[in-house]
């Protein structure tokens, strides 16, 4: 299973990989000389992967240092090694510069009020069942692939022997409920939904009640896509998250779906979503094209949000755990014959 996922991951990144490395080889040959033009070109290549200007500038600076150490010239491999090292470091160890919102982080002024309300809620609401279902809350802007990702997640958990229930929280877009229902049927899991235009918080409440009654292991909540600039829609999302918290006694595991085609706006998206709901990790979708998905590097560097899964195809099996080293390799590592051989296996 894991092996299969990894090979799909490699396969999905193949186009990306050849594009960047070939690009570099075509530009520099096998030796890279230190001059402003070279550095500009490297920077451009990094930017062309949507990695963001800030990350690109930082990495280019490190390459400049390296080239100086090497006496103004280095092999292409050495340069790629610097890039690989830097990106990997960002993806695996970068500390969040902006701490995404957690429920414990109420602003100082609101703290007292919130606490009081929390007590009142605790008194009136029944204690959530200990254990309870694991709730996965899926959010993102329009058209990133939330519903498809949910189908893939459902398949993943089901194939691990867990019972799954889907909550059709996208009550806004035409036929979104039908789309989720079709996937639920294909995967073979139940789907709780109401009519179009229903209150998403109510749908989610129903789904959680159903899951508790059935002893379901995992509930995956779909939400309507929304641009992060729509304040009222973001407020609505916060409300759904609060309903889940109230019902289960803890924050949902929140996944932000990011389209690999997304440019620098991905950063603004991630920031606002993380300020609205407690985002745990990203899922990078549509990575099997020529899109490079470099925006996750910028997001990891700026917000410290890790990537958990990568979506690569259109069938329910096409979801793989994110492997920072593989992703980085695929983005920048030299395309050696040895690697090509492993790929052929």
């Amino acid at each position: 299973m894991i092996r299969g996922a990894l090979s799909r991951f490699r396969q999905g990144l193949k186009k990306t990989r050849t594009g960047l490395v070939d690009g570099m080889r075509g530009m520099f040959g096998n030796r890279v000389r230190l001059d402003q033009q070279t550095l500009d070109r490297i920077e451009e290549l990094l930017i062309s992967a949507d990695m963001g200007v800030q990350s690109a500038v930082a990495i280019t600076r490190n390459i400049e240092k390296r080239l100086k150490q090497e006496g103004g010239e280095a092999t292409l491999e050495a340069v790629l090694a610097v890039i690989r090292h830097d990106v990997l470091e960002i993806l695996t160890t970068a500390k969040p510069k902006v701490r995404p919102l957690r429920w414990d982080d109420e602003p100082a002024g609101a703290k007292g009020k919130r606490k009081k309300q929390g007590r009142a809620d605790a008194a009136s609401a029944p204690e959530p069942a200990p254990g309870g279902p694991r709730v996965i809350f899926v959010v993102g802007v329009n058209g990133t692939g939330k519903t498809t990702t949910i189908a893939k997640l459902a398949y993943l958990y089901k194939s691990r022997g867990q019972s799954v229930l889907l909550a059709a929280g996208d009550t806004f877009r035409a036929a979104a409920v039908e789309q989720l229902a079709v996937w639920a049927e294909r995967v073979g899991v139940p789907c709780v939904h109401q009519g179009p235009g229903a209150d998403p918080a109510a749908v989610v409440f129903d789904a959680l009640s159903a899951a508790e009654a059935r002893g379901t292991d995992v509930v995956i909540v779909d939400t309507a896509g929304r641009l992060h600039t729509k304040t009222n829609l973001m407020d609505e999302l916060g409300k759904v998250a609060r309903v889940i918290r109230r019902k289960t006694g803890r924050d949902p595991e929140t996944l932000l779906i990011v389209d690999a085609n997304t440019g620098q706006n991905g950063l603004a998206q991630a920031r606002v979503f993380a300020e609205t709901v407690p985002v745990d990790a990203l899922v990078l979708t549509k990575l099997d094209g020529t899109a490079k998905g470099g925006i996750v590097v910028a997001i990891a560097e700026t917000l410290g949000l890790p990537v958990r899964y990568v979506g690569m195809g259109e069938t329910v099996q096409d979801l793989a755990p994110f492997a920072p080293d593989l992703f980085t390799d695929a983005l920048f590592a030299a395309w050696t014959d040895a690697e090509a051989a492993t790929e052929a296996e």
Binding site: I47, D259, N261, T262, G263, N265, T290, A291, G294
Partner: peptide, 10 residues
């Protein structure tokens, strides 16, 4: 999509 990055050209 207005949010498309460098891939738009491709």
């Amino acid at each position: 999509d207005a949010m498309t990055g460098q891939e738009a050209v491709n």
